[in-house]
């Protein structure tokens, strides 16, 4: 088992898995407590439009996805702050339009279809060294933003109206949370792909939520759980030669079910 660790692509996969787990633990926690899961799904699928345009223009794909994801995050922040009542409709619309743009630009780019599956389902075994650098930079930005603005981010997440009354610039910090979600989505796509990114961002968080008594602790527990699920999933997928993204998600989901079952047993035993 140890000799597989000597392959560079395995080393890269492990490092990327841990880095992305930390980003998704931190931001996934914010997404869940802010009830932005659907919103983040919208950002993830819209970023596919960026991938399509980047392919068409011959730009770096990671970069294209990042720009598009940030733009859609800002647009969604603007729209959802104004139109809280029509939020679901707006998200659904942007979600579909982003995907459609991506599909059409890919169609227009002749002879391109091979790599596309890796954006839908992830390609942790194909992480290059330059990908690692890019992921590290985004993780640093995400972590620093959350640490520096923790007080404001917590206030906006817990009670946005009250935060506004206390003088917090809620528009700025709400938008910041969405932009950070967009950055996380982009790097998480590399690991599990567009289709499964929401599961990666939320499953460890659901477990952490009931164990933690503060947002910060929740973020740390989520990051650690996510790392464990990712590495276990990676190991299993390598051994049985099955899709890594899907395996990681199934390992996470199975762990969540076991956790809920144990929780249920404990409650039943205590007669609640």
């Amino acid at each position: 088992m140890l000799e597989i660790l000597s392959y560079e692509f395995i080393q890269n996969a492990i490092i990327a898995g841990i880095l992305v787990s930390f980003a998704s633990g931190i931001i996934g926690s914010l997404i869940v407590v802010n009830r932005m899961v659907f919103l983040t799904g919208g950002i993830a699928h819209t970023s596919y439009g960026g991938i399509g345009i980047a392919v068409y223009l011959g730009l770096p794909i990671f970069f294209g996805a990042t720009i598009f994801a940030i733009a859609s995050a800002l647009l969604l922040a603007f729209l959802t702050l104004r139109e809280r009542d029509n939020m679901d409709t707006i998200i659904g619309l942007i979600w579909a339009v982003g995907m459609a743009i991506g599909i059409i630009f890919i169609d227009l780019s002749k002879g391109y279809s091979v790599d596309l599956m890796s954006y839908l389902f992830g390609s942790i075994l194909a992480v290059s060294s330059s990908d690692l650098i890019y992921i590290t930079i985004l993780l640093v930005i995400i972590t620093l933003s959350v640490v520096i603005f923790y007080r404001e981010i917590l206030a906006v997440s817990y009670d946005i109206e009250y935060a506004s009354l206390r003088g917090v610039n809620v528009k700025f910090f709400y938008s910041l949370i969405l932009v950070l979600s967009a950055l996380t989505v982009v790097i998480a796509i590399k690991i599990v792909g567009l289709i499964l990114v929401i599961a990666l961002l939320t499953i460890p968080v659901y477990i952490a939520q009931s164990l933690a008594n503060s947002l910060g602790v929740m973020m740390i527990i989520s990051a650690i759980l996510s790392s464990i699920f990712t590495l276990v999933g990676l190991y299993i997928s390598y051994n049985y030669d099955i899709s890594s993204g899907a395996t990681i998600i199934l390992v996470s989901a199975l762990s969540l079910m076991i956790f809920l079952f144990i929780n249920f047993l404990i409650r039943a035993k205590n007669g609640i």
Binding site: I148, F149, Y150, R151, E152, L154, A155, Y158, D159, Y162, A163, R166, G167, V168, N169
Partner: peptide, 13 residues
């Protein structure tokens, strides 16, 4: 959170 946040951001309490 009841404390006012009159600057753009405050680092902790």
């Amino acid at each position: 959170m009841g404390h006012s946040n009159n600057k753009f951001f405050k680092f902790g309490y």
